[in-house]
Computed example of a mutant assay.
Amino acid sequence: MYAEINGLSMYYETHGTGRPLILLHGGLGSGEMFGPALAGFTEHHQVILPDLQGHGRTADIDRPLDVRLLADDIAALIDHLGLDHPDVVGYSLGGGVALQVAIRHPARMGRLVCASAGIRRDAVYPEILAQQGQVSAAAAEFMKQTPMYELYARVAPRPADFPRLLDKIGAAMAEDFDLTDEVRDLRVPAQLVAADADMCPPAHFVEVFELLGGGLQDGGWGGEGRPKGGHALAILPGLTHYDLFMSPLFAAVATDFLRRPA
């Protein structure tokens, strides 16, 4: 189905029943990338699976690929569908978008799960930043040999837009950012999820957890020492940035957090 929002014709699918959950894919992917892992989310939730601007079946429009604008799209989708404070779960680019929904539109959502998304550009390993610097339209021919392009070419309304998407993603990744202050002021319960071999070191995600009041003291027998906002941290073993989204562990820890009492 398509929702006409913010000048965008956003494709989305709905799977399962239960409390609504918006699940956001990574860069150069689409909702389809969650594959078999989707079943772990739909077991207890109605999952709304959008394709972000320029990704999957959602055609690009004339504006930058900015996580803040993408977050505004998700807030508009929440309103369009009449969802009652859905939880928002995102991975990589989708994790950054989910975090921005929590920063910009906290009254519209329930809980947040932000996976494999650092809050400072300088937290990313230098060799990965160098690789990101090579993402542009000039890399389109090389990228056409990858599964990401195969998916894009199969479902995109305008497959010829692929170089333009690479240019926009490259420009977005080149921008510096530091969300330390915004994370410290988060007003929704948040779970941080990362692979133990992610594109940022585990120490970065521990640092973010500390901004939320976590990891500063013993949790106590009754959890009285845990962060007051209900925040949590999960470092998933044996995974990387490139396979976390497919792991049943991701769905398991995310949905466990979402089902906990407030």
Rank of each mutant, 00 (worst) to 15 (best):
Y149A: 08
E150V: 15
E150H: 15
L151I: 03
Y152P: 03
Y152S: 04
Y152R: 00
A153S: 11
A153Y: 02
A153P: 06
A153I: 08
A153C: 08
R154G: 10
R154E: 12
V155D: 09
V155Q: 09
V155K: 04
A156G: 04
A156V: 04
P157L: 04
P157R: 07
R158D: 05
R158N: 05
R158Y: 03
P159S: 05
P159V: 06
D161Q: 13
D161M: 08
D161R: 05
D161H: 08
F162D: 10
F162M: 11
P163E: 13
P163D: 09
R164S: 02
R164K: 04
R164Q: 03
R164F: 00
L165K: 02
L165E: 04
L165S: 05
L165F: 01
L166P: 14
L166K: 07
L166M: 13
K168H: 06
K168V: 01
K168P: 01
K168R: 14
I169G: 06
I169V: 11
G170K: 00
G170Y: 01
G170N: 01
G170I: 03
A171L: 14
A171R: 04
A172I: 07
A172V: 06
A172K: 08
A174D: 06
A174Y: 00
A174G: 10
E175I: 10
E175P: 02
D176Q: 09
D178E: 06
L179F: 12
L179D: 02
T180V: 02
D181Q: 09
D181N: 07
D181P: 02
E182H: 09
V183G: 00
R184S: 10
D185S: 13
L186A: 11
R187N: 04
V188N: 01
V188G: 02
V188W: 05
P189H: 14
P189V: 13
P189L: 14
A190L: 15
A190W: 12
A190I: 12
A190T: 15
A190F: 11
Q191S: 13
L192I: 15
L192K: 10
L192A: 13
L192S: 12
L192P: 11
L192R: 11
V193K: 08
V193A: 10
A194I: 07
A194T: 09
A194S: 12
A195S: 08
A195T: 09
A195L: 02
A195Q: 04
D196P: 13
A197E: 05
A197M: 09
D198H: 15
D198I: 14
D198M: 14
M199E: 13
M199I: 12
C200K: 08
C200L: 06
P201T: 09
P202N: 09
P202V: 09
P202Y: 06
A203S: 14
A203P: 03
A203K: 12
